[in-house]
Design a protein around this nucleic acid. Structure first.
Lengths: 240, 240
DNA sequence: AGCGCTTTGTGCACCTGTTCACAAAGTCCT
DNA sequence: AGGACTTTGTGAACAGGTGCACAAAGCGCT
């Protein structure tokens, strides 16, 4: 067990210790593709059939050059002088991200957060299917959440193998997160999304991404502090 | 209203369009400091008083050189041949991140996720105090969550000014997120943590960080696809 | 068909961040 | 005190990512 937190190039550390540079697609680009995908989905709903890199870039909150370079990594799917066909681009991005495949997801930990995740609609919409909810508390086992019955932690391995689960979502307290992770990995799970405030140790073959509320707040705090202290930084000299 | 999603250098896009390079501390480093802080806290609890960059790096899941360089940005607080004093380092990182100050936080949207956030203990532990929970649904107003009464969206501006809220957490559906964000910004909030699956438009003076479950899953999907498709990639040629 | 307009795709320079490798600096033992 | 050992802090090379600026390419109008 080594410690390669896979960290996407965006919200997490840039590229991972796994230099899985098999495709030429940079990690930073991969992290942005889902954003483009979402924006394109919104455009498609409003009947837009074609979009320029400029328009799409504004909607996605990135520079247009960056967007074009990102898209160029998946091929030349634009038409010069016109822009990109929305529907076609949606398809190409989906395909590139692997969303045309099906992924079975298991959520471990059915506390507040687990409940929220289980009810999150965005899960199913992109080929991710929650196949099981798992908790170690016997009192929670059997509860019905969003049409899915909570099962006991003892069944984790069974569930993973039964449904060929590839992605595990850890929403347990920090204390049990590493244990759960180890069991997921042993059972064959190769991707983990970790909500517990802990650095997980996994083999190099497993990808881990973390979502950490507390860290995000602390980063905001840093900038917030800067705002109040920084700007009028000149009268400070005599005032200190 | 422009579109600078502040994107930390990690899970989100590298550095932001706000080149707030007032201090010499790189964004990538800022994003890691909270991790070090957490690990150091754990060490302190187990009675460790001194730690080497190697040990700390392993526990934090980064390389030791990177860790030392990170720490060197806040000063020379280590002792050669010995390591770092845990308690002192905790203090220095806290100070750098601005955690010695107090931040008032308001959460908008008390659905599943809002509930989870309101009950999250990690909030209070680092100087963040949730001063209000807000929802637009009259049926939820008045509910007591973790000792805090849910107030109506109409009171948002009042609450923000009353408590000098600096950080707003948006946990509403995507449809209302931009509205809520605009109101937060108008009321004077300068940092936003967004859980809604949408790209928020804010003035350059406001920092936005996003936490997007769906995006994280899609990034995992990309790597997952790569794992299953990549390695034996050679029979494909004739199969197409 | 030709011309001008629009927009893509990309070469290049810049910049941020990572990693290596080592000198500087301190501790501990004799 | 002196020397061996440990560990920090950092200079320098490298890698990855961003943004500019423009040539290439397609559209539509005349």
């Amino acid at each position: 067990m080594s410690l390669p937190q896979s960290e996407g190039p965006d919200s997490q550390g840039p590229h991972s210790p796994l230099p899985r540079r098999r495709t030429g697609i940079p990690e930073a680009t991969v992290a942005r593709l889902p954003v483009y995908l979402r924006v394109l989905g919104g455009l498609a709903e409003t009947g837009v059939t074609t979009v320029s890199s400029d328009a799409l870039a504004v909607a996605a909150g990135v520079g247009s050059a960056k967007l074009r370079k990102d898209l160029s990594h998946l091929g030349s799917y634009g038409t010069r002088g016109v822009g990109y066909d929305v529907e076609y681009l949606v398809y190409q991005i989906s395909r590139t991200l692997g969303l045309t495949q099906h992924y079975s997801v298991v959520i471990i930990g059915v506390g507040n957060l687990g409940h929220a995740l289980a009810n999150y609609a965005g899960f199913a919409s992109r080929g991710f299917q929650i196949v099981a909810l798992i908790d170690s508390d016997p009192r929670r086992v059997g509860e019905d959440i969003n049409g899915l019955e909570v099962r006991h932690l003892d069944e984790l391995e069974t569930v993973v193998k039964e449904h060929e689960v590839s992605i595990g979502v850890i929403a347990t307290p920090a204390a049990s997160a590493q244990d759960v992770c180890d069991r997921l990995v042993s059972a064959g799970v190769t991707s983990v999304l970790n909500f517990a405030p802990i650095v997980l140790a996994v083999p190099d073959t497993v990808d881990v991404r973390k979502v950490d509320l507390s860290i995000e707040l602390q980063i905001l705090a840093f900038h917030e502090q800067r705002k109040s202290a920084g700007p009028p930084a000149s009268l400070e000299v005599g005032a200190g």
